Simulated scan of single mutants.
Amino acid sequence: MIYKYLSIMKNLTLLLSFILLPFLVVTAYGQSAKPRILVFSKTAGFRHSAIATGKTAIMKLGKEHGFDVDTTENASYFNPDSLKKYAAVVFLQTTGDVLNDVQQTSFEKYIQAGSGFAGVHAATDTEYGWPWYGKLVGAYFVSHPAQQQAVLNVTDRSHISTKHLPAVWTRKDEWYNFKEVNKDIKVLITIDEKSYTGGINGDVHPMAWYHDYDGGRSWYTELGHTEESYADQNYLKHLLGGIQYAIGSN
């Protein structure tokens, strides 16, 4: 009888272990297995007024679409122990030289390990002296005309960040001209320079793109200078798709 009792208890223990294992895993990693992203918005040059609005919008997107969001302007987050917590890093309107050499190395290793990057608007006006970053973000800002309405051509509507957009998208924003455009980027949106004044990149003037880079993923949108952008559902879905692409399967 004792042997039979012990056998029953052993079987019950094994059964309970299989039932409870998923809950124990969830507890070990927090209350949910949500991916977490870091939104970085340090500026060492021009500071965009839409930074606060952009942070709020991304946090709201996270709550609605299943990812957690930390925001910072503290470059010390760029160390291995901190970065390993994040599925992706978003450079939101960063400008100028925002990371030191040690922090740059940590970020390079983070991307090389298969992580994701998303850049918004002035992310291309950042780290001109760091060629690796220039290749990652995909281009560098060179100039812009006054804010005005222009026609965007959505050249790739198969991507998660553009599949909801019309083929021709007319909107007002601040339109960047670029230099040192990475030849490996996959262009999602171009701007029609005949639809506004001040463009200098010619017939193929990219405004949003993505690419695999040095082991990781990179997505960039030039759009988002204006605060009004973050109340525009088409733009928000575009931004969400870019973040989701950067997160990937991390």
Rank of each mutant, 00 (worst) to 15 (best):
S106K: 15
F107E: 09
E108V: 15
E108W: 00
E108T: 15
K109L: 13
K109R: 15
Y110N: 03
Y110H: 12
I111W: 03
Q112G: 04
A113W: 07
A113V: 06
A113G: 04
S115T: 09
S115Q: 13
S115V: 02
A118I: 02
G119D: 03
G119V: 06
H121K: 09
H121A: 12
H121L: 08
H121S: 11
A122M: 11
A123Y: 01
A123W: 00
T124H: 02
T124M: 06
E127R: 14
Y128L: 10
Y128N: 08
Y128S: 07
G129V: 08
G129R: 14
W130Q: 07
P131G: 02
P131K: 15
P131R: 15
W132F: 14
Y133S: 12
G134P: 03
G134L: 01
V137R: 07
V137E: 06
A139G: 07
Y140T: 08
V142M: 11
H144K: 11
P145A: 13
P145F: 07
A146R: 14
Q147H: 09
Q148T: 13
Q148A: 14
Q149W: 00
Q149M: 07
Q149D: 13
A150W: 02
A150Y: 02
V151I: 14
V151R: 13
L152W: 02
T155V: 15
D156A: 11
D156Q: 10
R157P: 02
S158T: 15
S158W: 02
H159Y: 06
H159K: 12
I160L: 02
I160Q: 09
I160S: 14
I160D: 05
S161W: 00
T162F: 01
T162N: 04
K163L: 03
H164Q: 13
H164P: 02
H164N: 09
P166T: 13
P166W: 01
A167R: 11
V168G: 02
V168Q: 13
V168W: 01
W169Q: 09
W169T: 10
W169K: 09
W169D: 08
T170N: 14
R171K: 15
R171F: 06
K172M: 12
D173C: 08
E174M: 07
E174Q: 13
E174Y: 09
W175D: 05
Y176P: 03
N177E: 07
N177G: 08
K179V: 05
V181A: 07
V181Q: 10
V181E: 08
K183N: 04
K183Y: 09
D184M: 01
D184I: 01
D184F: 00
K186I: 06
V187W: 01
I189G: 00
I189Q: 00
T190C: 01
T190K: 10
I191M: 06
I191G: 07
D192S: 03
D192Y: 08
D192I: 08
S195Q: 13
Y196I: 10
Y196C: 06
T197D: 10
T197L: 01
T197Y: 00
G199H: 10
I200D: 04
